[in-house]
Amino acid sequence: MRIRCPYCGERDNGEFSYFGDATLTRPDGMEADASAMHDYVYLRDNPAGEHRELWYHAAGCRTWLVVTRDTRTHTITDVSPARDVARTRRMGEAA
């Protein structure tokens, strides 16, 4: 599988580290109850189809990326810097 880094261009996935589901939002540890933290840490979906994932370009520019990938075919349809995704999410929540 090849991932197109927005800064380095297309690279082999061996340059990247997979860090999981990019759609999860961590509960506030001070405000969340134990069951919410348990669910965040231990419960994960295993989707078949398009899924947003968090990847780190460890052997390149060291940028965190959100990769939209079909888990059945490994076809990548979008790669965005995680910083931009987080900024867009915060702006959407503020509106």
Rank of each mutant, 00 (worst) to 15 (best):
D39M: 11
T23E: 04
V67C: 01
C8N: 13
T63C: 12
E53D: 02
H51G: 04
I3V: 13
A95Q: 12
S17V: 08
D78Q: 03
R69W: 03
E50A: 12
E10C: 10
E10R: 04
S35T: 14
N13P: 05
R89M: 09
D84N: 11
D39C: 11
S35K: 12
Y56N: 02
A58H: 06
T63S: 15
N46F: 15
L24V: 08
N13W: 11
G20S: 03
D84F: 09
G9E: 07
P6Y: 07
Y56L: 12
W55D: 00
T75H: 07
M91Q: 14
E93G: 08
R69Y: 11
A36Y: 03
P81S: 13
T23F: 06
E15L: 15
D12R: 01
Y18R: 04
Y40G: 02
C8I: 12
R72T: 10
P47R: 00
G29E: 03
A94H: 10
R4F: 12
E53H: 07
M1E: 04
R26C: 11
V41I: 14
D84H: 10
L43F: 13
D70N: 05
L54G: 13
D70W: 04
R26T: 09
T75F: 10
R44F: 14
G92M: 12
H51V: 09
T23I: 06
T71K: 02
D28P: 02
T63W: 04
R62K: 07
R4Q: 15
P47T: 06
R26Q: 15
S35M: 12
T88E: 07
W64P: 00
T63N: 02
A34N: 07
D84R: 02
R44A: 14
R62P: 01
T25E: 08
W55A: 03
A48G: 12
A32E: 00
G60V: 13
G14Q: 09
R2P: 01
Y56W: 15
L65V: 12
V79Q: 01
A95F: 10
